[in-house]
Write a protein that binds this DNA or RNA. Structure first.
Length: 269
DNA sequence: ATGGTTGTGGAACAA
């Protein structure tokens, strides 16, 4: 069977429902992982989301900020949330597909929203940056250490690791998301799985590849000062099951867009 | 070096 997984930082699910509908008109993933839903569980548009065809919905929400959700057409067996974050932010949810999910049964999907880290790239001066590093430390080696077998890890990881993951490597060396300390730690988190960078399996690492363009640039497309902050990682046993990756860049140009675009992985299981 | 925009919630904060 084919398993299709999309990750999308939606930047408020309540005002972005029309955009999700627009996306689903051309791409109908089995699993849609959302970040920055920005609502409490009770404020989540449950009925609308079920109306979109996702019968199985798990969310970790909080008031106003952050928040992650997994929307699934396939049955889920287990759900975990709340790990990795010292401050109790809603930044992670993991699901395992149920025994009745065909050959995808037992696959685990981690959905992450790693802290952005503020503006100053110095953990001694900026608590948000220190928290970002701590969060990644927990992903790598914490008590809730990830087990990378039959697993997919997606989300807004808020790090652009490669020189080609930013519009200008030189210009962004001291900009949070692309600093050497973050990139180094990001690499160690990836190696700890170990995890396969699925996007770079399909897109030449020598080519620029972005998933986010700031709102603060009205001419985002012509300026093209993007970054690859959103990621799809696979456990190594699933590397050969990866059929395709799509970066839905067109979504950045839709009406009232998120600043992030969806990324979709197709696995043949 | 600065400022540029968006969302929540109704000021200030996060991104």
């Amino acid at each position: 069977m084919r398993l299709t997984v999309t990750t999308w930082n939606i930047n408020s699910i309540r005002i972005r429902l029309p955009l999700i509908r627009q996306f689903l008109a051309t791409c109908r993933p089995d699993i849609l992982c959302l970040q920055e839903i920005k609502c409490r569980d009770a404020e989540f548009p449950w009925n609308e989301v079920r109306g979109l065809g996702f019968e199985h919905v798990e969310i970790s929400g909080q008031k106003g900020y952050h928040g992650v959700a997994v929307l699934s057409r396939l049955p889920l067996a287990t759900v975990e949330k709340g790990a990795f974050c010292r401050h109790g932010h809603a930044r992670h949810i993991a699901v395992t597909l149920g025994a009745d999910a065909g050959t995808a049964a037992g696959v685990t999907i981690h959905n992450f929203y790693v802290p952005a880290g503020g503006d100053v790239p110095d953990p001694a001066l900026n608590p948000k940056f220190e928290h970002k590093l701590h969060f990644m430390d927990c992903m790598m080696a914490g008590p809730t250490r990830l087990r990378a077998t039959r697993a997919v890890l997606v989300g807004d990881l808020n790090v652009a690791p490669l020189e080609t993951d930013v519009w200008s490597h030189k210009a962004l060396l001291s900009v949070v998301s692309h600093t050497p300390v973050e990139v180094d730690l990001f690499g160690r988190v990836q190696a700890a799985g170990p995890w396969v960078d699925a996007m770079r399996e399909k897109f030449d690492p020598a080519e620029k590849l972005f998933t986010w363009w700031s709102y603060r640039s009205p001419d985002w497309e012509s300026a093209d000062k993007g970054r690859r902050l959103d990621h799809v990682w696979l456990s190594p046993d699933l590397r050969d099951n990866l059929e395709a990756i799509t970066v839905h860049k067109e979504a950045r140009g839709w009406e009232k867009p998120s600043d992030h675009v969806p990324v979709t992985a197709v696995l043949q299981l």
